[in-house]
Design a protein around this nucleic acid. Structure first.
Ligand SMILES: [Zn+2]
Ligand SMILES: [Zn+2]
Ligand SMILES: [Zn+2]
Ligand SMILES: [Zn+2]
Lengths: 160, 160
DNA sequence: CTTGATATGTTATAAAATAACATTTAACAA
DNA sequence: TTGTTAAATGTTATTTTATAACATATCAAG
């Protein structure tokens, strides 16, 4: 067990399950989870935090893959396009998805102190988005919700 | 009148009012709305769309201000810190705020076709954010909600 | 007048992302 | 088999976005 993403969990099985789910989804949808793509997903899952593209690139290069920016950006494009990874725009960084429901619109809590990022479920989200569509006549394709602040753990530390 | 931000409005008075409000707020809070800062706000208000920092810089340089990146970035930092301008993270671009309530958390609709951006009010927002705080123990400082899709006008054009 | 704080200006550099093109790989048709 | 394609990977070069570092100017307080 390991304290990550604001709370402890069994990280090894979490990686294993996520990779397996990705493999299955790729199989079903005829997508190619090639070595560099799979390894990128694994690295992001292992880190379990928002990683910048160039940090991922370093890791990939050490593992014998190409060492130039497009190597990382292409893998990230594939992974984000297919929902395995999300981009945190505020951080120019990427994080492995921790929710297996396809097509969900991710919501992130970003702690300014420990820099950890937690992907949460906002049950009201769908309802809100459809309300916006109704009142504005705007057809939503993607919604990005990034919430910045101080996580519970850091608050405790600060109080001391 | 001019079609901007998904709907028509009196743009000149909209600029005038916003600049006046900024001046008053700066006066009240002891902030300095210096020439370059004021001009930056005016340009963003005139454009009434998301502008990239280097586009703003070009405009400032033409108006006799400095021509190097920090000139634009510093003005933008002042304006965003004080709520006169918002950054659209998805576009790496900046847009003048169209809501005068201080401390509001902005919500943006970004049209993928015409690239126009509209800042909207989401009445449920405060309630949702505080719900997140309660359930997660996370203290929110800022929330970023960027919604991408197709605006009503572009939908009509596409249907034709 | 001096000092310190704030703002502006510059040069240089860092960080993030993409364009363009060559090479490889694997599936497929002739 | 062999030629033909499409997808993926690799590289070099460049663009786009943002900041560091430092010099100069402005102005109010002491
Ligand atoms: Zn997710
Ligand atoms: Zn934290
Ligand atoms: Zn606003
Ligand atoms: Zn549109």
């Amino acid at each position: 067990m390991n304290g990550i993403g604001f709370h402890s969990h069994d990280h090894k099985s979490c990686i294993f399950e996520a990779v397996k789910a990705a493999e299955e989804q790729c199989c079903r949808q005829g997508l190619q989870l090639t070595p560099v793509r799979k390894r990128s997903l694994e690295i992001l899952l292992e880190e379990h935090r928002a990683m910048r593209a160039y940090d991922l690139l370093d890791r990939l290069a050490k593992d014998g893959f190409g060492s130039q920016p497009p190597v990382a950006y292409r893998a990230l494009e594939f992974l984000t396009n297919n929902g395995f990874v999300h981009k945190i725009e505020k951080l120019n960084a990427f994080i492995a998805c921790t929710h297996r429901e396809s097509g969900h619109m991710p919501v992130f809590l970003i702690c300014s102190q420990c820099e950890r990022v937690s992907e949460i479920v906002l049950p009201e989200a769908e309802e809100i988005w459809s309300g916006v569509e109704t009142t504005s006549g705007f057809s939503i394709t993607t919604a990005l919700l990034e919430i910045e602040g101080v996580c519970a753990a850091c608050k405790v530390n600060t109080d001391k």
